[in-house]
Design a protein around this nucleic acid. Structure first.
Length: 271
DNA sequence: ATACCATGAACAG
DNA sequence: TGTTCCTGGTATC
């Protein structure tokens, strides 16, 4: 489910609804055995960064959550939540809202030092409240210029492009016309500039919309809000190019498949 | 670089 | 019932 926009949306919403509230903590599924440590404590802050979430409780008690590939939340904004449905790893229940966490790859208590180390592994998160765009841009530009990896692989590296996932990667590279196998260090300033700006744009749009939207108004005949999931993308998981009809090609980079258009994204070394 | 693995639910047929 | 799914850690050459 999640790239960085989902984490931003969830962190903000949960912070709004649950922070400052005393919570009952339980693991209806039973696999989070430390729920009792949190039970009865006040949730001070929900912190989201990249694809990580930290839940701060008093006395340096910190819950770390990573949704992984399958994880999701259900937030019931009611005083009378439904019975847990399915494999609810953790339920945090406040007086007027209840949060269910399902299928996270990580859900564990950590020390402040652990949190600090985890955060230190991340680059600047474009969706974080304290994002410093000029500084981040210069820092990432430098990393990209020094990397010998293909840009398609680098875009999934959370220590550089924090919060970017497989859809953002495919859509942004198509939108700026860069072949995913182009070596990062060979990107021109113009290409980096376009990619950087478009990635920020896509991430912000996704955060506002609640899902990633790769198409522009000119690509579709319906309002973006009416698009089904499969209609929102220009290349991700598609067979043909939305703009020229070409057969899309698929490459595995950074351990994941990416579709690209051979017409719009020229092979490196050719033009 | 690449394979394998762990986390469940939603949706199509 | 089968298939897909917006991840990343660990293990292996």
């Amino acid at each position: 489910m999640p790239e960085g926009h989902i984490i931003r949306i969830e962190a903000d919403r949960q912070q709004r609804v649950l922070s400052g509230k005393r919570v009952r903590a339980s693991s209806p599924q039973g696999r989070f055995t430390e729920a009792d440590v949190l039970d009865g404590k006040t949730l001070r802050q929900v912190e989201g960064r990249g694809k990580l979430l930290f839940y701060h409780f008093p006395k340096d008690t910190i819950l770390a959550v990573h949704l992984g590939r399958l994880g999701r939340f259900r937030l019931h904004e009611t005083a009378d939540p439904p019975e847990p449905r399915g494999a609810v790893r953790l339920r945090l229940q406040a007086r007027h809202a209840t949060l269910d966490l399902i299928a996270p790859i990580t859900c564990k208590l950590v020390t402040p030092e652990h949190r600090t180390r985890e955060l230190a592994r991340l680059g600047p998160d474009p969706l974080a409240p304290d994002f410093d765009e000029p500084a981040a841009r210069a820092w990432v530009r430098d990393k990209v210029a020094r990397s010998r990896k293909p840009i398609g692989a680098l875009l999934l590296d959370q220590s550089i492009f924090t919060g970017v996932g497989n859809i953002f990667r495919a859509e942004a590279l198509f939108r700026v016309g860069v072949h995913p196998a182009v070596l990062a260090q060979e990107l021109t300033d113009g290409q980096f500039d376009a990619l950087w700006r478009d990635m920020l744009h896509l991430m912000r749009v996704a955060t506002d919309a609640g899902h990633i939207v790769g198409v522009e108004r000119s690509d579709v005949d319906k309002p973006a809000t009416k698009l089904k999931r499969g209609e929102r993308f220009l290349v991700y998981h598609r067979d043909t190019c939305r703009r020229c009809g070409s057969e899309l090609e698929t490459l595995t980079l950074g351990g994941r498949e990416i579709q690209y258009c051979p017409e719009h994204q020229p092979v490196p070394g050719r033009s």
